[in-house]
Amino acid sequence: MTLDSPSVTSVEDGSDPSPIGDTAALAGARSRAVTDERDRRPSSPFRQRLSRLDNRLSPYLYVSPFFLLFALVGLFPLLYTAFVSVHDWSLLGGQGDYTGLENYRRVLEDRYFWNALRNTISIFLLSSVPQVLIALVLAGLLDTQLRGRTLWRMGVLIPFVVAPAAVALIFGNVFGDRYGLVNEALQGIGLEPIKWHVNTLASHVAIASMVNWRWTGYNALIFLAAMQAVPRELYESAAIDGAGKVRQFVSVTLPLIRPTLLFVVITSTIGGLQVFAEPRLFDTQGLGGSDRQYQTLTMYLWELGWRVRDLGMASAVAWLLFLIIIVFALVNLAVSRRFGALGGRR
């Protein structure tokens, strides 16, 4: 297959006068395909045939690497995990007998599964909600005429570049129960130290703050990109109508970046429900504390697979987690639809 296909603006088969922009290019390609069909002659020369094939096939070819890779590293593991989850399967011993849904039953009967689900949702809420809100405000502030704009904008991305393991190490010192930075500060001003690793809610807050520290800047940059696409005239007219900065942000910026908002909410939901590195590295045992008070679903999966060495049960957890994420994503979608994020102009 050759890659020197005619560019999308070629008018070889008399397509419409092309407007600019990529939607137009797509439309062009579509209408070309239609004319193509109409023009077909039984004895068309080889070249023409090839170019027609090219036109039709190239778009698929261009996107195919992603789907091929997805099939290899996404779909295959997904299906294989499903296969493992209905078998007795030990980490070192390998495949055992077919057991049907036995692994799922054992997982659903295990109190640590429900405990992990509670922790995951709690950490997810404590991280995703403030994260999106702070990122929005941060992006709004970065979208102004600051001196050294690029510096500030790049600055918010720095935490994202730091490896999670290093983040966990730093925050481990900050949130030490006895000799941690926060507690020493609290004691310095006469307050009771907080048992960050013992108290369930405190541990969730500490872990969520690690997640937030890492992801807020990243999300802020995505919001910033969307905000810069908002036509400046709208702000001018809003200003003329007497809207202040806050009012402009709420009534102009937010409605216009809704699709991006939806995107960030969905990606941070998926990420938030899979949180692993931060709680895993929050102590040295990696089981989520003495009472598993911060064991998340992915950590529970890991414990079953690598400590208990039962890959069958671990795979069942993986599938349950997959289903939970789908449910959450659908709820997100439904909620956002209601608010018209996707229903509007496209």
Binding site: G176, R178, Y179, G180, T284, Q285, S290
Partner: peptide, 14 residues
Amino acid sequence: LTQWSEDWTASFQN
């Protein structure tokens, strides 16, 4: 404290 935790390591110095 639990062995190998950050607080445990710090307690050698305190």
